[in-house]
Amino acid sequence: MSKTVGATLAEPMLAVEPELATELGLSDGHIVDYLQAEPDFFARQRGLLAQLRVPHQERGSVSFVEAKLEQQKLRIYELEDDITGLLTVAGENERIFRVYMDLMPRIFECTTVTELELCLRRCLQEQLRLAAVRLIVDGRAFPNAASPDGEQLERLYRERMASQGQYLGRLGKEEKLRLFQDSLVNSCALIRLGAKGELGLLAFGSTDAGHYGSDMDTFLICQLADLVSRVLPKLVAAEFKSNDGR
């Protein structure tokens, strides 16, 4: 009775005819175990390696060596795609980093809270194509700068942020309307300002529903929020002093 060899492109292996396999008590697993235990098997059986054929979807069958080469080519194509994707992401990250680095010195030039918010909006909406940017001062920290958004902050803290300092994801229709008005926002990043989140809220909105998510790296936006937190008390005090002097 003659022996036959079968395999797949995903995992080449040796097999024998069912009748002979039953007679000898062999299974595919036995053959796989043997080949793994004898890594130099094909080095001893060079002629057999050249004769082996495996099924191929387009060409009917190919040699064992051709099948292995095809696997390697596919793997190379996959790695090339991965590298291209990584380079694209790296380029975009560098662009975003430069935008933030350009913005930070401008923050120190602002003299009022309103000017600060306008500075953030112009830079981030124009250069990063964000749909909306909001800076909301917490009236509990700055009674003289009480905002009509105070109740809204409380609801966001309670319903979306709880004990967390940030929230990334989607908001309900009413929440979006209250926070971003008529701006088309499908995902957002909310970062509380201050060491304990007591100063207010910095909010970013994107039209892309998947732009902000729980798996996003928040290093840059948290650095920006920290900087805003440092200058905000001085701006509020200066603005109140200016208004009081009038």
Rank of each mutant, 00 (worst) to 15 (best):
M1N: 13
K3D: 09
T8F: 04
A10S: 12
A10L: 06
E11H: 12
E11N: 15
P12I: 05
P12G: 03
E23V: 00
G25D: 01
L26V: 00
L26S: 01
L26I: 01
H30E: 01
H30Y: 04
V32I: 14
V32C: 08
A37N: 12
E38S: 05
A43Y: 04
R46N: 08
G47T: 10
L49T: 05
P55S: 07
Q57L: 15
E58L: 15
V62E: 15
V65Q: 14
A67T: 07
A67M: 13
K68I: 07
E70Y: 08
Q72N: 02
L74N: 09
R75I: 02
I76L: 15
Y77V: 12
E78M: 04
E78Y: 06
L79M: 13
L79K: 14
D81T: 08
I83P: 00
I83T: 06
L86I: 04
L86S: 02
G91E: 12
G91S: 12
N93E: 15
R95Q: 14
R98S: 12
R98N: 15
V99G: 07
Y100T: 06
M101I: 03
D102S: 13
R106Q: 14
I107G: 01
F108M: 06
F108L: 13
E109Y: 00
T112E: 02
V113M: 04
E117V: 00
L118N: 05
L118T: 03
C119G: 00
L120K: 04
R122P: 01
R134Q: 15
R134F: 00
I136Y: 04
V137L: 04
R140T: 11
F142D: 07
F142T: 11
S147C: 12
P148T: 09
D149N: 08
E154G: 13
Y157Q: 13
R158Y: 11
E159M: 12
R160L: 13
M161N: 04
A162I: 03
S163P: 01
Y167D: 12
Y167G: 08
R170S: 15
K176V: 04
S183W: 00
V185F: 07
N186P: 00
N186K: 11
S187N: 07
C188S: 15
A189Q: 09
L190N: 10
L190Q: 10
I191D: 02
G197L: 10
E198Y: 08
L201T: 02
A203V: 05
A203W: 07
T207C: 07
T207K: 09
A209D: 13
G210Y: 14
Y212M: 06
Y212H: 10
Y212I: 02
D217G: 03
T218S: 12
L220V: 05
L220P: 03
I221Y: 07
C222K: 14
C222F: 01
D226K: 09
S229W: 01
L232H: 06
P233H: 08
P233N: 04
K234S: 12
K234I: 08
E239V: 03
N243G: 03
N243Y: 08
R246G: 13
